[in-house]
Design a binder for these strands. Structure first.
Lengths: 385, 385
DNA sequence: CTGTTAGCGCCTTCAG
DNA sequence: CTGAAGGCGCTAACAG
C-alpha cells in the first residue's frame, strides 16, 4: 500500500520517531539525518497520512462549510458560489481543506442528511464550521451551541454566545435602496421582503423603515409583502401590489433579493406596467444577471466573496486563539453594501404630495453616504473569473 | 472530550467491540444488547469518529472534487457551481462527504496548492476523485494515472486507461450551433474557440468543421480565432473578425462559451455592428445571463448539473466495483447538448451564393435532430433554485 | 452471541 | 540528538 514512515525508517536505518520528527520540522534531529530522511521520503513518494495524523493530534486541518436552504433562503444558486470561493481560497491559503455539506437539494440527498449538522461535524472532526443559509426556525439552529469547535454563521444572527457571524450590513443596504427611491421623489414605497425566518429579512425591513422615517413617510404594513426569495414570490408580489387600492399602490418597490425583483419586474411587465416609468424597482444582491435583465436592475450589491473570506478568517482566527488563548474575538462582522444604480429606477410618476417642486432628475447620488455607484460600462455583470 | 465507544461500553457493561458491532448493524449481537447499547449511545450523544474509523477501515467515505483553472478554462464562475451541486447531491445521497479543492484563485491559495493534486488526495485518503477544468498541458495531468483510487475527469479526455470521464457531447453541440447558422443561410461562419489545451476546444472545433463540411462550405483557418474563454478574448475576436478583408468577414460566429460570446457581442455593438441583423452569434453553455443579455443569446446548453451528477455516479460505481470486482465500467459518458434559439441569430444579411432562393426565415428547427428549443417564455434563465 | 487481542499510521511523552 | 513505549478511536480477526 502507501508508503509510511516505517518504510522510510527502515530504508534510512532510523526509528519511525526520527522520521516523524524530521518531516515535521522539529529541531531535535540532526541536520544530516533529516536531510537523508527527507530525501528518502521524496524518493519513495511518501505522503503523510492525514487521517492517522488527525487521530493522534485531534486536528484534521479541515473546515466544514454548510450550504443550506438552496433556493429558498436567499442563498439560491446565483449567490452561494462566490461565497464558497471566498471560503475556499482563505481556508486553503491557511493550509486547511474544505468539506462541503449541502442540504436542501435532491430529495435523496435530503433524506441522507437526516444526520444533524453538528453530528456531521463531530463525526468528521472538522476543526471549524461555517454555515450559510440556515433558517432561524431550523430545529437545529439552537443546537449549534453544542458545537465544540469554532463556528461562524453567514448572514444569520448567531443563536448563542460562542458563535460568530459575518453578514452584509443589511440595514444599511435596505436603507440605501429606500433612500434612493425617496431621492427620486417616491413616497409610496413598498417592500418585497424575504421570509421571516431569515435574519436578513428582519434587518432589511428595519433599514427600509428607518429610511422611511427619515423621509417623514409613515410606515404602512400593507406595503410589505413577504416573499420567500424565489422568483415566483416576486411575481405574486406584483399581483398583490397592483390590486391594492389606487391610493395605496406603490410607485417604487424595494426587494430583498434580485431574484424576487426580477420575478416582480417580469410580472409587472406582463401586467403592462412600465418599469421604471410607472414603477421603480430596486433589488438586493447584484447577482450577475441583474445587469442584464430588462431594464438593468438597480440593486444593492453584497460583497459575496468577502462574506465567505471573512467568515473563513474568523473561524481560522478563533482556531488560532484557541491555541494561544489571547482575547475574545469580535462576535461579528458587518460588510458594507453598495447601491448600484442602473435603469430599473426613475423619478416617481406621481408628483410627490410634498410642497417641493417636481422631483429632481439627476439626483441619484442623493442616497446615503459614498457607497453609491452610478450605472456601469457595457460589459458589467458577467463574471469571467 | 467526545464520547467514545469505550464510554458506552463502560456504561452498558460490555466490551467496546460489542458496541462497535451493535452500532454498525452487525448481526452477531443480541437484539437486546444492541438495543441497550443504542439507547445509551443516544443518551450520551455518541457520534462515531470517522477519522479513527477511516484509519482502520482504510476508507474515508470522502470524495475529492478539484475545481481547477477558475476563469480560464471554461469553468469560470457561471459554470462550475451547478456541476458542484450535482456532485454534492449525488455523493451525499450515497453517504459520502465532499472535499472541495480549488486551485487558480487568490495568489495565496495558489502558492499553498503547490502540493500536487494526487498528493493532496493521498494525504486526505479520499476514496475517489473528480476533477474539473484541468488543462491537458497541466504538468500534473499525466500524473493522474498514479492515483490509486477511482478518478473521473469532467470535460477532459483522460490521460490514461484507468481514468473515466464525463463530458458534454461537444462535437454535437458545436455542430448544432453551426448547423443552426447554416440553416439561416450563413456561409461565412467563424469560430471563436477556447484555448488549445482544453479538450472541449478540440472537440468543438471538430463539430464546427463537420457541420461546415456537411453544408459544403470549405473550412478556413483564418475564420477560427483562439480565445481563452474570457470575455476579453471575445472582445479581441470582434476586432480580429471585423478587420478581416470584406470577402472573408463572417456573418455568423460560433463561440465556444457564452462568456466569450457576450464579450464578442458587446464589442461588436461598440463597433456599431448590429446583432443579429449584421452578424449572428451563437454561444455555448447557456449560463444564466445568456437569457438576459441584449440580444438574448442563442446558445448550446450543457447539462451542467448532470455533468457533476454523472461524474459522481461514475466514481461511486467504480468504488463499488472495486469491492465486488465485476466488470469494466464504461470509460466515459457523453451528455447531449441542446440548442437554445434566442435572438442573437438571424438569417444571413448577404444572400447566400448558392443557387437556392433567399434563406427561409422560419427554419430555426432545421438544425440537427430533436434537441432544439425555440426561445423561451419570459422568466427563463435566472435560476431560483 | 460476546470478549480478547492486535493493529491501522502517526505523534508525544519519556529515557537514554 | 535518538529510540522505545504507549495510545488516539475504532474495527477485524480470533477465541470462547
Amino acid at each position: 500500500m502507501a508508503v509510511t514512515i516505517k518504510d522510510i525508517a527502515r530504508v534510512v536505518g532510523v526509528s519511525p520517531t526520527a522520521v516523524s520528527r524530521a518531516l515535521n520540522g522539529h529541531r531535535d534531529i540532526g541536520e544530516e539525518t533529516r536531510a537523508r530522511i527527507k530525501r528518502v521520503a521524496q524518493e519513495l513518494g511518501y505522503r503523510r497520512n492525514a487521517i492517522a495524523r488527525g487521530l493522534v493530534t485531534n486536528k484534521t486541518d479541515t473546515i466544514g462549510l454548510f450550504v443550506l436552504g438552496r433556493g429558498s433562503t436567499g442563498f439560491g444558486d446565483p449567490f452561494a458560489y462566490e461565497v464558497i470561493l471566498g471560503v475556499m481560497d482563505t481556508v486553503s491559503a491557511a493550509g486547511y481543506d474544505l468539506v462541503l455539506y449541502g442540504v436542501g437539494g435532491a430529495p435523496a440527498a435530503r433524506r441522507c442528511s437526516g444526520a444533524s449538522y453538528v453530528g456531521k461535524c463531530k463525526e468528521r472532526c472538522v476543526d471549524g464550521v461555517i454555515m450559510m443559509g440556515i433558517r432561524t426556525d431550523d430545529p437545529q439552529y439552537h443546537a449549534l451551541g453544542g458545537l465544540d469547535v469554532p463556528c461562524v454563521l453567514i448572514d444569520v444572527a448567531p443563536p448563542g454566545d460562542g458563535i460568530g457571524f459575518v453578514a452584509s450590513d443589511n440595514v444599511l443596504g435596505a436603507k440605501q435602496a429606500t433612500e434612493h427611491l425617496v431621492s427620486l421623489g417616491h413616497r409610496k414605497i413598498a417592500m418585497l421582503n424575504g421570509h421571516a425566518h431569515a435574519t436578513v429579512s428582519t434587518e432589511r425591513l428595519e433599514g427600509y423603515k428607518i429610511a422611511l422615517m427619515n423621509a417623514g413617510i409613515a410606515f404602512d404594513p400593507a406595503l410589505v409583502f413577504e416573499g420567500d426569495f424565489s422568483k415566483e414570490s416576486g411575481a405574486q408580489a406584483a399581483d398583490y401590489f397592483m390590486t391594492l387600492p389606487l391610493a395605496l399602490r406603490p410607485t417604487g418597490v424595494v426587494a430583498a433579493s434580485d431574484v424576487m425583483a426580477i420575478g416582480l419586474v417580469q410580472m409587472l411587465k406582463a401586467m403592462r406596467m412600465r418599469v421604471p416609468e410607472d414603477i421603480s424597482v430596486v433589488g438586493f444582491d447584484d447577482i450577475p444577471s441583474a445587469a442584464h435583465v430588462d431594464p438593468p436592475l438597480t440593486t444593492v450589491r453584497q460583497a459575496r466573496y468577502d462574506l465567505g473570506a471573512s467568515a473563513a478568517r474568523m473561524v481560522l482566527q478563533r482556531l488560532e486563539e484557541g491555541r494561544t488563548a489571547i482575547a475574545f474575538p469580535p462576535p461579528g462582522i458587518r460588510l458594507a453594501t453598495e447601491l448600484v444604480v442602473r435603469r430599473s429606477t426613475a423619478p416617481s410618476p406621481a408628483p410627490s404630495p410634498s410642497p417641493s417642486p417636481s422631483p429632481p432628475l439627476r439626483q441619484a447620488r442623493a442616497g446615503s453616504g459614498p457607497a453609491v455607484r452610478i450605472a456601469e460600462p457595457p460589459g458589467e455583470g458577467v463574471q469571467t473569473d
